[in-house]
């Protein structure tokens, strides 16, 4: 027991938490931006998968991890835009459109990988690159904090920065104000001359780009390969975390961290106490369901209270 305690409160543990949290947080932020504009983006899972593959392919093609990332982001933005087109222009149900995109992404990535490399399932013959780890000047010399924060993958810093950027976008810019207005009361937004669809297109595109960051992290962060279905539901977790965090960037950060801790804790507990690995794997999902139920219940009560006032 003592040893578990020591591991949990070790800097390495928290280093690990940040690593595990990164893709989830990207997905959660992506869900936040989309749902704030009134579109439920269940396609996140598929977007991440596509971006993961695109990043691998282009980083190998250009021999540049950065260009790989760039193309991954572009692909994510485009798929986001495509979802917008389906929902806003063709009036497709957002959930079914998202499921369709996910199904296409799951098969399409394998298909594309095979065409390009002849690999089946894992991009073993593509010489893709990894995005660099980054030592934080000054901070790296601080004990404990340095160990936790420094030498993380560059995208881990990007995601932390994204929390701030999305917070500013939503709460400090005219665009964010419009996104929130459109998502909450499109009639009100329209009555003051806001182009509702335009704002929603922008929001799903941003959402797609954020999800793409998460996908790129998976295939270019620590690994340098794409594998079939490697997102493993992280897009869905993002949706759940967004619902639980009340669709705010700060909430997204906290819930994703909770998820990251639950996930990392699993690995630790396993080494410390004899709890089966498979049970430990359930922890983050159980945490999410319980958290979501508690959050929804308190929100329901809150609405009832507001109404009875």
């Amino acid at each position: 027991m003592q040893s578990v305690f020591n591991i949990i409160f070790s800097p390495d543990f928290f280093y690990d938490v940040l690593r595990v949290t990164t893709p989830i947080l990207f997905a959660t932020l992506a869900a936040t931006v989309a749902s704030r504009s009134g579109i439920f983006n269940i396609a996140l899972e598929g977007i991440m998968l596509i971006a993961a593959l695109v990043g691998v392919i282009f980083s190998a093609y250009f021999s540049s991890a950065w260009l790989g990332l760039l193309f991954a982001l572009i692909s994510g933005g485009l798929v986001g835009l495509f979802l917008g087109f389906l929902v806003l222009k063709l009036k497709t149900d957002a959930i079914l459109a998202g499921i369709a995109i996910n199904l296409m992404a799951a098969g399409g990535t394998i298909f594309l990988l095979y065409i390009i490399s002849g690999d089946r399932g894992v991009s073993s013959s593509i010489k893709s690159l990894v995005l660099p780890k980054f030592p934080l000047p000054v901070i790296k010399n601080i004990p404990i904090i340095g160990t936790i924060l420094s030498m993380q993958n560059i995208l881990t810093y990007v995601v932390l920065l994204s929390v701030i950027v999305i917070h500013i976008l939503l709460y400090k810019t005219p665009l964010g104000l419009k996104i929130r207005a459109v998502g909450e009361n499109p009639n009100a937004a329209e009555s003051v001359g806001i182009n509702v669809h335009k704002i929603q297109y922008i929001a799903v595109t941003i959402s797609g780009i954020l999800a793409a960051f998460g996908g790129a992290f998976l295939s270019m962060g620590y690994l340098s390969m794409f594998s079939n279905g490697m997102t493993a539901g992280r897009g869905f977790i993002g949706l759940a975390a967004d619902a639980m965090g009340g669709s705010t960037p700060i909430g997204a950060l906290l819930v994703s961290l909770l998820f990251g801790i639950a996930d990392s804790m699993g690995n630790v507990i396993q080494t410390g106490i004899k709890i089966p690995y498979e049970i430990v794997q359930m922890l983050p999902y159980i945490t999410t369901i319980v958290g979501l139920a508690i959050f929804s219940y308190s929100k329901k009560k809150q609405i009832e209270k507001l109404k009875s006032k």
């Binding site: 500013i168 400090k172 810019t173 005219p174 964010g176 104000l177 419009k178 929130r180 207005a181 909450e184 009361n185 009639n187 009100a188 937004a189 009555s191 003051v192 001359g193 806001i194």
Partner: peptide, 25 residues
């Protein structure tokens, strides 16, 4: 025609927001 979670001021200026540095509300 109001957006409930926004402040009164935000509702009033919605669509014609005053800006600073071109980018921010």
């Amino acid at each position: 025609m109001l957006v409930p979670s926004l402040t009164a001021a935000e509702n009033i200026i919605l669509g014609v927001e005053p800006r600073k540095f071109g980018l921010f509300t």
